[in-house]
């Protein structure tokens, strides 16, 4: 797939001396959904803000669809839509007027049919004449998305799109993102909800303290770094792991009622039958077995804590 966004050695040092981004290199392909994960203050919003022209980078180079974001800023910005984290709206205007304003601002002629379809897609058509101060928080969030999509961008940035929204709206947004991807729109999102990235993203990037620690396909990441877990529910609680099982990497939970065995999800030999035989030979009865796969959240936390 062709490259739609390219960052090379992007560094941002604020006037206070704080280095928000260190030498970021990143390439995004057309039509992919890329999730940028990181804790608060990691540099996610700064990175997006640089690409969109809201923050000046200290050094580095960014191109959008081959256009330099400084020299060819018009061409670069024309194909970008941004939904910022905060809801920022002129609350005295109407839904339709503010969406039309955004389209005009991005140099596009008025297109009533497109605006109508966009508002219908976002369940805003019935509210088109309502002033923004009459809308709920969720509806305002939809308006923010409508504004970002008003000029039919090729790349959409969603900065924490579902932070503080209810479950229905979150599901609607996920559906919308998938529909946009199907239309060829590249989507770059930052999120605290790791299941959101796991559910939707083709690739994830983990950023911490201004450094991109990892960029990987979501499935590949899960495959490479994912662990599986076998939980053995015991008939009688144990005080400690018996010496006969000491050579197994087992963990006993706080109540002593579960033994947990973690193993490589991709290993051909998990040694589970062998383990169960050893448990039986040690005279330990169990009532049930549960297996689970580690989530992206486990991987993310492990990366940040340096355990992976």
């Amino acid at each position: 797939m062709p490259t739609v966004l390219s960052l090379s050695s992007v560094t941002k040092i604020y006037k206070s001396g704080q280095t928000a981004l260190h030498e970021i290199d990143l390439v995004i392909e057309k039509g992919e959904i890329f999730a940028l994960l990181g804790p608060n203050g990691a540099g996610k919003t700064t990175l997006i803000s640089i690409i969109c022209g809201l923050v000046s980078m200290t050094t580095g180079h960014v191109s959008v669809n081959g256009y330099d974001i400084i020299k060819d800023y018009r061409s670069a910005r024309a194909i970008i839509g941004l939904v910022p984290q905060e809801i920022s709206l002129d609350i005295f205007t109407t839904v339709e007027d503010t969406v039309r304003f955004s389209r005009g601002l991005f140099g596009k002629p008025n297109a009533p049919d497109y605006i109508e379809q966009l508002l219908r897609d976002l369940s805003l058509w019935e509210k088109r004449s309502a002033r923004l101060n009459e809308l709920s928080g969720g509806m305002k969030r939809r308006v923010m998305i409508a504004k970002a999509l008003s000029h039919e961008p090729d790349i959409l940035f969603l900065d924490e799109p579902t932070a503080g929204v209810d479950v229905n709206l979150r599901r609607d947004m996920w559906d919308l993102v998938r529909r946009l991807r199907d239309r060829g729109v590249t989507i770059i999102l930052t999120t605290h909800y790791i299941e959101e990235a796991e559910e939707m993203a083709d690739r994830v990037g983990v950023i911490d303290r201004g450094r991109l620690m990892l960029i990987e396909g979501t499935a590949t990441l899960m495959h490479k770094l994912g662990k599986r877990r076998l939980t053995i529910l015991l008939h009688q609680p144990l005080m400690t792991i018996p010496p006969a099982l000491a050579h197994w990497p087992l963990q006993l939970d706080a109540e002593g009622s579960r033994l947990v065995y973690e193993f490589d999800a991709n290993a051909s030999d998990t040694s589970i039958p062998h383990l169960l035989r050893d448990i039986g030979a040690a005279g330990i009865d169990y009532t049930d077995l549960e297996t689970s796969r580690s989530t992206l959240e486990d991987i993310f936390v492990g990366l940040l804590e340096g355990q992976i």
Binding site: G53, A78, I80, E86, F106
Partner: peptide, 18 residues
């Protein structure tokens, strides 16, 4: 000042307008 106050200035700054 009003777009700065309401933070809607982000839209102007990110638009392809000189």
């Amino acid at each position: 000042y009003f777009p700065k106050f309401t933070r809607t200035i982000f839209e102007i700054l990110s638009a392809p307008i000189s």
